[in-house]
Amino acid sequence: MNRPSITWKLYIAAFYLFLFAPLFVVAIFAFNASPFPSPPWRGFTLEWFTGSGAVFGKPGVLVDPIWLESIGNSFKVAIPVALLAVLLGTVNAWVLERAEFRGKTFVAMMMLWPLVIPGVVLGISILAFFSRVTNGLEDWLQTDLDFLRPGLPLVVLGQLSFILTIATLIIAARLRKFDRALEEAAFDLGASRARVLRTVTLPFLSPALIGAGLVALLMSFENFNTTLMLVGSEAPLPIAMYGQMREGASPAINAVSLLLMLGVGGIASVFALTSKAER
């Protein structure tokens, strides 16, 4: 088995070609000077990034308020999701690794559960539940609680429901490796609990905290299924892209995709570097 046959090698090569073909054509046609993202090649242009719309009737991505707004909406969701995931994930990891109480295995199982629920079902269940809660509260308080209606805050909650599991797992894995003798030494040297946490434990956890934050950011940015059910009038990027793709899009969508690929590639390499430092 250590001498791979030529067919096997060819298969591997074909496989990687297959893997990158779709991404490659998306990137290429972002630069095609044609109103549609399809062949033939009509020459190189940056119109779909920075054009004012004078040539093809539609402005480039970086000057189009519609695209910019949806990118902004994605950030408005992803940043709170990432911050909450890291904060709550750390507490959850503490519960999993340090606390002792009856029913802990049950809590640990429950924390994994969101991963096996289809995203669409997570979306509709949160939509239905929060709609009932909001109706009840509005009747009771006699005020409008629009932030609990479909919209970006609800998208944050929906995405958090499963991203929190992943953040918890990443942070708990790191906490498990921590040598508690280090904390005890700090206590013996007279440090307070808060100080030990700040100067010993959290610095040790920091690669996992950054990693969990980046993963949460990425997952939030590209989540589609759950978001689709909870979104209101302000569409995050994947929802806006989906709408455009159904209508038959201009190469502007390729330009957005290329920017997304570059952004994701950047974040992923930061993540790869931090997790390498961890080992």
Partner: peptide, 18 residues
């Protein structure tokens, strides 16, 4: 790993163009 860090919609767009 790389293609899968990119949004599902980008990958689907690629297949549509192909």
């Amino acid at each position: 790993l790389l293609p899968f860090w990119v949004s599902e919609l980008v990958r689907t767009l690629g297949w549509m163009i192909l």
